[in-house]
Design a protein around this nucleic acid. Structure first.
Lengths: 355, 355
DNA sequence: CCTGTTTGCTGCATCGATTGTGCAAACAGT
DNA sequence: ACTGTTTGCACAATCGATGCAGCAAACAGG
């Protein structure tokens, strides 16, 4: 069997100067021939052909650093997400990447882990690399990010939470949460006869835009239903699984058992909630209604039914790209509708043929 | 309230030439002062201080395209994964990113959707951007990727599946699957009295390295246990949820009911399996043992217990970085041990304080 | 044949940072 | 005071691609 890979060091990558030498043309002609500009620069079609042939033989590909330096744009496009380990954000990533590829751009996805310092560092880094535009999903401090981007003249769009410094595309959190709350109440009308006979919202950060909207909707719907919520029914304890687990345990302690209903505000919080709930007897669980803002295919099939809301990640990203394509600069705020997913439903993602 | 953002176009970003002008020093001195080389270039500490002060005031940050062009490296590091929408791969992403940041590098993560053509395009693009090294997780054609990388003198490491053209770091799939199979058998010794009284492996591509190792282990353990498997017990129907759903439905049809046990070979396949299983009566489900290669926090709490295997994504990536750091060039293959996760277990990820 | 236009290409400066080389001024040694 | 070393910095080339300005040759029109 032949040795597949020799250890011979590859010769330096071919440049337009190499192709120029080989083809007898000048570097500027080669550049034009390999790019789009050969027509306007009146390079003979025959010349273009022969140059392209040689370039292909040499396995030429442009040095994007040089091109970027000259053209002051890189072909890179950035997106900031809080973390990779969450279905909603990975759905954003997947769509962001797909649309970027469609346009011949290279997506750079960075996760901030919701750290303001990290967030700024990432933006500064992406600016250093001259990304052509930036999508910001889940910034802790949108205004400061906008200021940074503006100072570098970098186009940016806020996704999932609105900023005051650039166009924004957000989920209709109020509508999604209102509808979810209604569904939970329809399932079991928790009129608050006792503290246990109530619906509790858990998880998220009340300072966050999305969470704030959802809490608002939660309050509105309960109030409309004639059962205005007690502040104790809203437990915005952050997104970390651990803390949600602690809080739901503490709640059960206070109540002397499971609450009548739980609206969990994020998948990560739900992971924690689950850690506690699953220690509970099955019949107790069945006596409870549970909802979760955000959809996860596995969470759809738990021991107890879970009403879920699927945010339209693909739609959010599509809208954001539309704004880039149409060069929208004003402070518009586009809403994208989320979708209610009934318990035990098989949902096919836009990348369902995936592996 | 003051207008937060004026529409005044930002002045062009400051360069070392601007800083040079402002500080009275030469561009080369500025470059040295702002970098690491000022000591060896004998720039007076006082000069360095004053230049850095001015640079900070001007919000200077280096143009990475120019630097990259000159130094022939970019500070970008690439990783290819099949897709974002899967816990195992996102865990790889998260760790890849964390280690990159630690080293001051910018991670570029690209998903190939397991398309050979896309895969090559991605590698070529990353080469154009002069990424400093590349991790390849889940290539469809490792040898061809290696050839491409070698032609550009690009260091690369295979992760999760071994390549013949570069060092590899892989999970010990055989061990993980063997142990999982044993656990399933311990739970319910399926001796194959009838076709229903058997363990079935479903999902994955028998041509894939990981799947092949797992199938091997599955066979080995059953054979050891004195119940050599029938070929019909191995259904490598790919990774797509839809196809797993079809296949498991077909299997149940053939058997006239649920099989005694199911070892699902990937999370995406498991999503599909679930779509079918969940239509089944609860007591039928409880009569079955289920295992899944790969871990998902929600899958841990389904209606029926699921034995899972958690691959050590963090460990895989750590090893891969170690090889880069230590400049390993020979064709080593490092194994990282996966971990068995008992049903209904709360597992804390390395990024558990996340949001 | 002579002038004006079009065609097809080359030369050169440029983007911003890095780095090898060179060169004064300061300083040390005798 | 005179030579040799060290210190501190500036100059200019360079990385690879791009695009403006310009220049021969071919060609058209009279």
């Amino acid at each position: 069997m032949p040795k597949l890979f020799t250890m011979t060091r590859a010769p330096r990558k071919a440049t337009i100067y190499d192709i120029a030498r080989l083809s007898g043309a000048s570097p500027s002609t080669v550049s034009a021939a390999l790019g789009e500009s050969w027509r306007t620069r009146r390079i003979a079609e025959a010349t273009v052909e022969s140059i392209r042939k040689i370039a292909a033989e040499q396995g030429y590909s442009a040095n994007m650093q040089a091109r970027g330096l000259r053209k002051a744009r890189s072909g890179l496009v950035g997106m900031i997400i809080p973390l990779h380990d969450n279905r909603f954000f990975t759905a954003l990533s997947q769509s962001f990447e797909a649309f970027a590829r469609e346009r011949g751009l290279v997506p750079v996805i960075a996760s901030s882990l919701r750290e303001p310092v990290e967030e700024r560092r990432i933006v500064e880094t992406l600016i250093s690399y001259a990304v052509d535009f930036l999508f910001i999903a889940g910034a802790t401090d949108p205004d400061s990010v906008s200021a940074l981007c503006r100072s570098a003249d970098l186009r940016h769009i806020f996704v999932d939470l609105p900023g005051r410094g650039a166009p924004s595309v957000v989920s209709d959190n109020h509508k999604g949460a209102a509808e979810l709350t209604r569904r939970l109440l329809a399932d079991r009308p928790l009129r608050g006869g006792s503290a246990r006979d109530r619906l509790y919202l858990i998880g998220g950060d009340a300072g966050d835009y999305a969470t704030a909207r959802r809490i608002e909707a939660f309050r509105d719907v309960l109030t409309e239903a004639g059962i205005p919520p007690d502040p104790a029914q809203i437990i915005a304890c952050g997104y970390a699984p651990r803390s949600a687990m602690r809080e739901v345990a503490a709640l059960c302690d206070r109540l002397g058992g499971l609450p009548g209903g739980l609206l969990v505000n994020s998948l990560t919080a739900f992971e924690g909630v689950l850690g506690h709930l699953s220690g509970q007897p099955a019949e107790a669980l069945r006596a409870m209604v549970v909802g979760c803002y955000d959809y996860d295919p596995f969470a759809a099939w738990l021991q107890f039914p879970v009403h879920m809301v699927r945010q339209d990640a693909h739609g959010l990203i599509r809208e954001a790209y539309r704004m880039i394509d149409e060069n929208v600069r004003n402070l518009v705020l586009t809403m994208v509708e989320p979708e209610q997913i009934a318990p035990r439903t098989f949902y096919d993602s836009p990348f369902a043929d995936r592996g």
